[in-house]
């Protein structure tokens, strides 16, 4: 116990002194050639069985890295079973997918490609398709020094691209670094965000994405469909409706909200979250202030998208 006390006294100052939210770094190290190849793949519909969808179909980079539809549409118009989470800043999520079944980006990237409702491919088919292309063969040969493209290299390139899909320099990050001031409303929104307890789950670099929480902690959240939740991964009933806490970065760009896409606006989302998870009916004025704060979380998209 003494050890814990020691740790406590040590961290006490730190935690009081620093904000529970940290800014996204300005730059990250990456392999440019691989990332550009990954970008090409990210936008290539050849990675779906009927050549209709690509990664970008559901993670629309020019918007919030997510899908404006309640659920995404895969090959042959098949519908997905959950709202598409944003690909931006995904590298800072502790797990991938809503229920955290993938431990990292590499595991995640394979998911949609092999999902019959999404891209409906398999590694062999992907290899066959890409190896048929002279352009890809040359690109992979240049970068991976192989004559035959392998599935692992495809995933590797996509992951390398996803690694740089970060959105630094959001107004709030710049505020944290002391570069700008928030407006009165935004500042109040942030205070309320903390006071109401939103911060309890939405904290860290991604303002979320670092823990699982139950949708409907306080009041049970009624769902229409059977969503792939944490219970599906662990096999434990008490994890019913438990999902990864989603990131709030670029939240203004990624409506609709929640795993079921049921909240169309931020205001709606804030109010419903505080009801179900905090047991609090937030006054509309406070909710608007919080929304104003949330809008400061929109960052600058990476330059690689310009090329």
């Amino acid at each position: 116990m003494l050890k814990y006390l020691f740790f406590l006294s040590f961290f006490y100052d730190l935690c009081i002194a620093s904000e529970p939210i940290s800014p996204i770094p300005q730059t990250v190290e990456y392999d440019k050639a691989k990332a550009l190849l990954g970008k090409k793949l990210f936008f290539d519909t050849a990675l779906s069985r009927d050549n209709t969808v690509c990664c970008n179909s559901c993670h629309v980079l020019r918007e919030g890295g997510a899908d404006e539809n309640q659920v995404s549409v895969g090959v042959e118009g098949r519908k997905g079973n959950i709202q598409s989470p944003t690909v931006y800043n995904a590298r800072y999520n502790f797990k991938q997918f809503w229920n955290g079944r993938a431990r990292n980006l590499k595991e995640q990237a394979s998911g949609p490609m092999n999902n019959p409702h999404e891209q409906d491919m398999n590694p062999q088919l992907i290899e066959k398709r890409l190896n048929a292309s002279k352009i890809y063969r040359n690109l992979f040969k240049k970068i991976y020094h192989t004559t035959r493209i392998s599935y692992n290299e495809v995933i590797n390139a996509i992951v390398e691209f996803e690694k740089i899909l970060i959105t630094p320099n959001a107004k709030f990050d710049r505020y944290l670094r002391g570069e700008v001031k928030l407006s009165q409303q935004e500042e109040k929104g942030y205070a309320l965000f903390k006071q109401y307890g939103c911060i309890t789950c939405h904290n860290g670099i991604n303002i979320g994405g670092n823990s699982f929480q139950k949708m409907g902690t306080f009041f049970p959240y009624k769902t229409k469909a059977d969503y792939p939740d944490r219970a599906k991964v662990t096999g434990l009933k008490r994890y019913k409706n438990v999902f990864k806490v989603p990131t709030l970065r670029n939240i203004a760009l990624t409506s609709p909200y929640f795993h079921d896409g049921s909240a169309k606006t931020l205001l709606q989302a804030v109010q419903r979250m505080s009801h179900f998870n905090l047991g609090v009916e937030i006054p509309k004025k406070d909710a608007k202030d919080i929304v104003a704060f949330l809008k400061t979380l929109t960052g600058v998209k990476p330059k690689i998208l310009d090329k």
């Binding site: 814990y4 740790f7 406590l8 935690c15 529970p20 940290s22």
Partner: peptide, 12 residues
């Protein structure tokens, strides 16, 4: 423990 004690705390 820290997380339990503090009102708010990054869980990263």
């Amino acid at each position: 423990l820290k997380n339990a004690l503090y009102a708010y705390n990054s869980q990263d």
